[in-house]
Design a protein around this nucleic acid. Structure first.
Lengths: 202, 202
DNA sequence: AGCAATGCTGGGCACCTGCTTAGCATGAGG
DNA sequence: CCTCATGCTAAGCAGGTGCCCAGCATTGCT
């Protein structure tokens, strides 16, 4: 009797309409606003559809999270393989939307352990990718790994940006400009001035 | 007709019992668990008492927040006036309980603008105190303020620790030890090895 | 024509939420 | 002795929540 209830197909159109609506709600009003009825309303669909496509709300949240996380992993891999990997990593972890979505999920993780596990899993995947790529760079840039290990470098770069994004969302600003300047001065020392990315063919 | 409803005195015993319960709930289960009925249950009191002492839930949250924030400001002032201010600031912003409470309030700020305003206000007060104290230190320690401004130093120290605390709460760990070591190496260079604090007379 | 899979929905249950109202009990001050 | 402030509470309203069930329509397969 594993599941009993009939669920909609994973590739049905309205399923992703619901995912979009949930994600938007998450960004605009925080996770507490994401209820089956609110999501459906935002999507212009009936509330029961949420339960038709997702066994429960946890599954909805997980689906939103995984979709974004997988996309983010690809995005990060491309960044780390680009000509200025540290610059790219820095810009990557400075994206406002992605980082505020992440913050919502971190908040959710406090209450829904299924989600906490998934976030921990993906976070480690992100970090493993970063450390691996940066390990090569530390050698290439002749950074003394006793001074600045790849792990520390990665924690610093991604942590600082996320923290500043968070503070900005609260309306804080003091110290931000100086910190950005400091980081970017170091990036320039290592990788030269940021080259404008050429527009990516879609 | 400003308020109409009769409210309990701010110094009544059970009022702070409720505040304690709310704070504990906030820590253990996140802000979504903080409802009037849950708080009252945790406090061993009747739910209506919550509404007798607080006009609404926002006021409850604000009261919990202010109590902690005021205490934190004193704590921080003492830290910054101690013989090893940077070490003290570092340890201060590494306290697990305080930082996870802060994270809950940051989450709440997304949904309740009254709380967002209060957090922004106090955060700036914390930061102003930090920057002021650290400005003196930068001179005393002969740090080149063009290399590392007080603002950047403060954002880095407090941000890194909070970020790592957050990740730890999620179950992450890679890169943390190296980052801690890096920070503490720098602190030692500036202020010497951490002296054990003598037990504070209460 | 018959069947099964699929998308969808009307209606509803059980539960939790913030908050209110009207009132009871007690103790201090006049 | 009466009054009034204070602490507290029974009862309840209006509204939101997750989720389920039974069933309808449509489509494609055999």
């Amino acid at each position: 009797m594993a599941s009993s209830r009939r669920l909609g197909a994973p590739d049905a159109k309205n399923r992703s309409v619901l995912l979009d609506a949930a994600e938007q709600l998450l960004l605009e009003e925080g996770y507490a606003a994401v209820s089956s009825r609110r999501v459906a309303a935002k999507a212009g669909l009936k509330p029961q559809l949420v339960h038709y496509y997702f066994r429960n709300m946890d599954e909805l949240f997980l689906a939103v999270f995984r979709r974004r996380a997988e996309e983010g992993l690809k995005h990060q891999a491309a960044a780390l393989a680009s000509p200025q990997p540290l610059w790219a990593l820095w810009e990557f972890s400075t994206e406002t939307e992605a980082s505020s979505l992440t913050m919502e999920f971190v908040g959710l993780a406090n209450q829904r352990k299924a989600i906490r596990a998934e976030i921990a899993y993906y976070s480690e995947r992100f970090r493993r990718g970063q450390i691996e790529a940066v390990s090569g760079l530390v050698r290439r840039y002749k950074i003394d790994p006793n001074e600045l290990s790849p792990g520390a470098l990665v924690v610093l770069m991604t942590g600082i940006s996320r923290m500043i994004m968070m503070e900005k969302a609260l309306g804080m600003s003091s110290g931000h400009a100086e910190t950005f300047a400091l980081v970017e001065r170091h990036l320039e020392r290592l990788e030269g001035p940021r080259e404008p990315r050429r527009p990516q063919p879609d």
